[in-house]
Computed example of a mutant assay.
Amino acid sequence: MNSYGTGEGPAVRGPAVAWAVVDSVIGPLMLAATATGLVSVSFHARPAVRDTVLDRLRTRFGTEPVEAPGSPRLAEPVRQLAAYFAGGLHAFDLALDWSLTGGFPREVLRELARGVPYGTVVGYGELAARVGRPEGAQAVGAAMGANPLPVVVPCHRVVESDGGLGGFGGGLETKRQLLALEGVLPQPLF
């Protein structure tokens, strides 16, 4: 199943929400998955960030997320993210659980996942036009800021129309690193 699929698939037994922290070239990432698919990717997964994400998951799913680094639900996301960061994967093929987003933001994120491939960028306004709201560039920016699945749903590929980087929930240095990894920006000198 690709990253813009319905997220429906065979149920994987285990806790309602399994989570783990994994190392990456951009720092620790917290991944969470449900039986439907990957539901959350969070940058800078230090204790305060983890607590915030766990509270959000607890509230949304009405159950205690379980730390489960060996969970089958997380195995494929971990493998694909490692391959992506190593430069060997250019398109994610994961079941996703879109339940942490809805409405216009979900439309925008799905379009981003299916329509902005590795190594390319799109402007906020252009992405708004693609989902039928050409006046919605600011709303696209808000959707990017609320993206529960960054990297996998590549909000780092959305830039300002004048070529500026725009904002990024993981910080601009992380956005630069991801765009450099994909060959959009030059690698930093040091």
Rank of each mutant, 00 (worst) to 15 (best):
T120D: 12
G136E: 02
E76D: 15
T34G: 04
L189G: 09
S3K: 10
A32S: 07
Y4Q: 12
V151I: 15
R130A: 15
E76C: 03
S161P: 03
R130Y: 02
V39R: 06
F92L: 08
A137Y: 13
A35D: 14
Q80S: 01
P154D: 07
G5E: 10
L181E: 05
S24P: 00
M30R: 04
P186S: 08
E107M: 12
Q80C: 00
V153C: 13
L165F: 01
Q187G: 06
S71N: 05
D51W: 08
P69Y: 04
R73T: 07
V158C: 09
R130I: 10
R176L: 02
A143I: 07
S161D: 09
V21Q: 13
L185S: 08
D93L: 06
V49R: 15
V140I: 10
R60E: 13
S40A: 14
E64Q: 13
Y124Q: 11
A180C: 07
F104Y: 11
V116M: 06
M1G: 12
E111I: 10
V108M: 02
L149R: 09
D162N: 15
E67L: 06
G141Q: 14
D55E: 14
A137P: 05
P186F: 04
G88T: 12
L165V: 05
R60S: 12
E160I: 01
D93M: 10
G14V: 04
P72G: 13
G62N: 06
V25S: 14
P77L: 05
L89Y: 05
A48P: 09
G115Y: 05
N147R: 11
A142T: 13
W19F: 12
A32D: 00
G7K: 03
V116E: 11
R13F: 04
N2S: 14
N147P: 04
